[in-house]
C-alpha cells in the first residue's frame, strides 16, 4: 500500500497557484508559465501509473514541472543556434578595461535578491496550502490578487465582518507558519 495517492480532480485547486508561482520566478513570462503548468498537469495525468507513492503529490508534480522548465530552456537555446560568449568587455560607455569596473557592484544584488524572492514565494504558497480552503481563498484574493473587499464579499457571498474574521484567522496562521519556515 503506497503512502501517498493521486487525486487528479483536486490538482488544479490545490496546486495550480503553487506551481504557477514556482514557474514564474524561473521563466518570467506569464503565458509561458501558464502553458508549462498546464503541460505539467497533463503529463502528470498521463504518467499516473508511474507514481510510486513515495513522495507527496505536490513533490511529484514539482519534479515533472522542473523537467518541463529545463526542456523549455533547452528549446529556446537550440532556437538561438549558438550561445554568445564574450570574455572581454569593451563597450562604448566604459573607457576601457579598468579593474575597478570589473569588481561586482555591492549595491547590485539583484540576482541574489531574486533567488531569495523565489524561495520566499515558494514558502508563502507552501504556507497558504496549509490553510483551510476558504481562508486560503479569501487571503489569496485579498492579499495577493488585491481585490476590493466588496468584490470578494459579492463573489463568495459573505458579509464584510465575516470576511475580516476569515482574514484575521488566515493572517495569524500565515504569520506563524512563515515564522517557522522563513523568518
Amino acid at each position: 500500500m503506497p503512502e501517498h495517492q493521486l487525486n487528479p480532480n483536486k490538482w488544479i485547486d490545490l496546486y495550480s497557484d503553487y506551481l504557477f508561482n514556482y514557474t514564474i520566478t524561473r521563466v518570467s513570462d506569464r503565458d509561458m508559465a501558464q502553458d508549462l503548468v498546464q503541460d505539467t498537469f497533463l503529463a502528470g495525468l498521463k504518467s499516473m501509473k508511474n507514481f510510486k507513492g513515495e513522495a507527496s503529490e505536490r513533490t511529484w508534480l514539482i519534479s515533472i514541472l522542473k523537467r518541463k522548465i529545463i526542456d523549455h530552456y533547452r528549446k529556446i537555446n537550440s532556437n538561438k543556434g549558438k550561445a554568445e560568449v564574450r570574455i572581454t568587455y569593451n563597450d562604448d560607455e566604459s573607457e576601457g578595461d579598468w579593474l575597478e569596473e570589473r569588481v561586482a557592484d555591492p549595491f547590485d544584488k539583484t540576482a541574489e535578491d531574486l533567488m531569495q524572492n523565489s524561495e520566499l514565494g515558494d514558502a508563502i504558497f507552501d504556507c497558504l496550502s496549509k490553510l483551510p480552503e476558504k481562508q486560503a481563498e479569501v487571503f489569496r484574493m485579498k492579499t495577493i490578487e488585491g481585490y476590493e473587499t466588496e468584490d470578494i464579499c459579492k463573489e463568495l457571498n459573505i458579509n464584510a465582518s465575516n470576511l475580516w474574521v476569515i482574514i484575521h484567522r488566515a493572517r495569524t496562521a500565515m504569520a506563524s507558519c512563515l515564522e517557522k519556515n522563513w523568518f
Binding site: W11, N21, F41, L120, G121, T143, I144, A175, W182, F183
Partner: peptide, 28 residues
C-alpha cells in the same frame, strides 16, 4: 501583521487569475 504584509509585498508573488484557471480546468 506588518511583517507579514511587507514580506508578501516583497516576494511579489503572483497567481493565476480566475479566467486562466477556469480554462485550465476545462482542458484538464
Amino acid at each position: 501583521n506588518k511583517k507579514l504584509s511587507t514580506t508578501i509585498h516583497k516576494a511579489k508573488v503572483e497567481c493565476l487569475d480566475k479566467k486562466c484557471k477556469e480554462a485550465m480546468r476545462l482542458e484538464f
